[in-house]
Design a protein around this nucleic acid. Structure first.
Lengths: 123, 123
DNA sequence: CCGTATCCAACTTGATACTG
DNA sequence: CAGTATCAAGTTGGATACGG
């Protein structure tokens, strides 16, 4: 009774969080919360992501039901991605987490310096 | 102003979350929130983790200041890991996230079935 | 424009063995 | 008990080229 789902971290929950909080998902979700986007708009919005990784990220998010993919059969094809209602419910938890990271980053960085400093003394 | 830290997901924040929410960290943190643990106690508590991965996880968490490592120089050596005050502050955000996962897992699973079903139709 | 396919390098992971 | 070292194997990620 220490976490929301009981004593253990259920594996499916961890897997889900992995798929939704992975390297590019937060940025993509963040963009799509603002407005629906085309594929290349997302590429521009997240310049470091490659085509391949962006495609993989979008598929994963779509599969988990947090974004939607709409194909507009023009010439050439247009594809519009948008956040789903389920995806929107993700925002408060994520914001809480980012707020934690933001607030505690200085403490974490101090801890890292201490740790790294202590290591080099031992070497 | 859409997330706690502004328009973009700052890379250092993502990196930090990666280190703290990774494959084994949640389970380890969960155990250490209950009580301080020895190395092998943790192994038993998280049976799937290998020695190597557990060591890596513990070092990473220690470096980020969320757990502490205390060496009790007996024979043979004993090592006690415990959560730090900083580590404790991690629990509410994590619980919010796990609560989200718990609540929305059914919706996610439905979405996956739809997605996977739609794929096989196209093949 | 929106992808998929392929190749390849890099990082991660597990299994196993060994040390203080 | 609490690790470190080593090696094999699987997975990820980028670069590039091509297809609908």
């Amino acid at each position: 009774m220490d976490t929301a789902d009981g004593v253990r971290i259920a594996a499916p929950h961890r897997e889900l969080l992995d798929q939704i909080l992975d390297k590019w998902s937060l940025s993509v979700l963040n963009e799509l919360c603002e407005r629906p986007c085309r594929f290349n708009e997302l590429r521009r919005a997240v310049p470091q992501v490659t085509q391949k990784s962006l495609t993989a990220t979008l598929r994963r998010l779509e599969r988990n039901g947090v974004i939607e993919r709409e194909v507009v059969s023009t010439r050439p094809v247009a594809v519009r991605y948008r956040i789903t209602p389920l995806g929107k419910t993700l925002r408060p938890p994520v914001d809480v987490l980012l707020a934690w990271a933001s607030r505690n980053m200085p403490a974490v960085e101090r801890a890292r310096e201490v740790f790294d400093g202590g290591e080099e003394a031992g070497a």
